[in-house]
Deep mutational scan, measured.
Amino acid sequence: MKKYKITVYDEKTGEKHTIEIEMSEEELEELAKKLAEKHNVKVRIEKV
């Protein structure tokens, strides 16, 4: 498992949230996809 920083940005409201999380790359990609689809936000992932 690796550490990642996830930034979620909502273009409508301008809200931006960043968290650090430790998980596998596959789980992370699935999480990012679900966030983007369900909440209509942009998701950026960076390795820490």
Rank of each mutant, 00 (worst) to 15 (best):
L35R: 00
H17P: 01
E25R: 07
H17Q: 12
Y4R: 00
E20M: 13
K42S: 10
K16I: 15
I19S: 06
I19K: 03
N40H: 09
M1H: 11
E30G: 09
V8R: 02
E26M: 08
E29H: 12
K38A: 06
E25D: 13
V48H: 03
E29D: 11
E20G: 02
I21W: 04
V48K: 03
L31V: 07
E22N: 06
K16N: 10
E46V: 04
H39K: 12
S24Q: 09
K33F: 09
T7G: 02
E46P: 00
T7Q: 03
E37N: 07
I19N: 03
Y4S: 00
L31M: 06
T18N: 03
E30P: 03
K34G: 06
K38V: 08
V48T: 03
M1S: 08
A36C: 14
L31C: 09
E46L: 02
K42W: 03
R44W: 15
T18A: 07
E27P: 01
I21R: 06
E11L: 15
T18F: 05
T13Q: 03
E20P: 01
I21E: 05
K47W: 15
E26L: 15
V41W: 09
E27G: 11
T13E: 02
S24I: 09
L35S: 01
K42P: 04
E37T: 09
K16Y: 11
L35K: 00
V43E: 01
K34M: 10
K16D: 08
V8S: 03
K34T: 09
K2W: 15
S24E: 08
Y4W: 14
E37H: 06
E15W: 15
E26Y: 08
K42M: 12
Y9D: 04
G14M: 05
I6D: 00
T7F: 08
D10S: 07
S24R: 09
E27F: 05
V41E: 02
E15N: 06
T18M: 10
M23L: 13
T13G: 08
K3P: 03
E11W: 09
V41H: 05
A36P: 01
E27T: 06
T7M: 05
I6T: 00
M23P: 00
V48A: 04
E25C: 12
T18W: 05
A36F: 12
G14I: 01
K5S: 05
E11F: 13
E11M: 14
E20L: 14
D10Y: 14
H39A: 13
I45Q: 01
E37D: 07
S24C: 14
K2I: 14
T18I: 11
K5E: 03
H39V: 13
K33I: 08
Y4P: 00
H17L: 09
D10G: 02
V43K: 00
L35A: 02
A32R: 13
E20T: 13
K2G: 15
K16G: 09
M1Q: 09
N40Y: 07
G14L: 06
K5C: 06
M1F: 12
M23A: 12
T13Y: 03
A36H: 09
K34A: 10
L28D: 00
M23H: 02
E20C: 09
Y9H: 07
L35G: 00
T7S: 04
K5I: 10
M23N: 02
G14A: 03
I21D: 03
L28K: 03
I19L: 11
K12W: 12
K33Y: 05
K16S: 14
K3R: 12
K16T: 14
K47T: 15
K12F: 10
K38Y: 08
E22L: 11
I6P: 00
I6M: 02
R44P: 01
S24F: 13
E15F: 12
L28N: 01
Y4M: 01
L31Y: 14
D10N: 14
D10H: 09
K2P: 12
T18S: 06
K47L: 15
D10P: 00
E37R: 06
K47Q: 15
I45G: 01
E46S: 02
E15H: 13
A36R: 11
T7Y: 06
V8L: 11
I45D: 01
K3H: 11
S24N: 14
L28T: 04
K47F: 15
E22Y: 13
K38H: 08
L31H: 02
I6N: 00
M23D: 02
A36T: 12
E30W: 09
R44K: 14
T7A: 02
T13W: 05
K33T: 08
H39T: 13
E22G: 02
E15L: 09
R44S: 15
E22C: 13
E20H: 12
E15S: 08
E26W: 10
K16A: 10
M1N: 07
H17A: 05
Y4V: 02
E46D: 08
K34L: 12
E25T: 05
L28W: 01
G14Q: 07
E25Y: 06
N40C: 04
I6L: 07
K12E: 13
E37F: 04
Y4K: 00
Y9C: 06
K33G: 04
E26F: 07
D10V: 04
L28E: 02
E27K: 11
V48F: 04
E15I: 12
L31R: 01
I21S: 03
L31F: 14
E15P: 02
V43M: 02
K38L: 14
M1R: 14
L28I: 10
E37K: 11
K42T: 14
E11N: 10
N40Q: 04
E25S: 06
H39E: 14
K3I: 08
E46C: 14
A32G: 05
I45S: 00
R44D: 14
E11A: 11
I21Q: 05
K5H: 05
N40L: 04
D10L: 05
A36K: 11
V43L: 04
I45Y: 04
I6E: 00
N40E: 05
I21L: 13
L31D: 00
E20W: 13
E11R: 07
E29A: 11
E37C: 06
R44V: 15
G14S: 05
L35Y: 10
V41I: 09
G14Y: 04
G14C: 07
Y4L: 01
E22V: 10
G14E: 04
K12L: 13
T18E: 05
K34D: 05
H17I: 12
I19C: 14
K42C: 14
E15K: 07
K2F: 15
K12N: 10
A32N: 03
H17G: 04
K2R: 10
I45F: 04
K33E: 06
K38R: 11
Y4T: 00
E46N: 02
N40F: 10
E11P: 10
K33N: 08
E37Y: 04
K12G: 11
L28Y: 03
D10K: 02
K3E: 03
G14R: 04
Y9Q: 06
H39Y: 07
D10E: 05
E29G: 08
I19Y: 15
E22S: 07
T7L: 04
L31N: 00
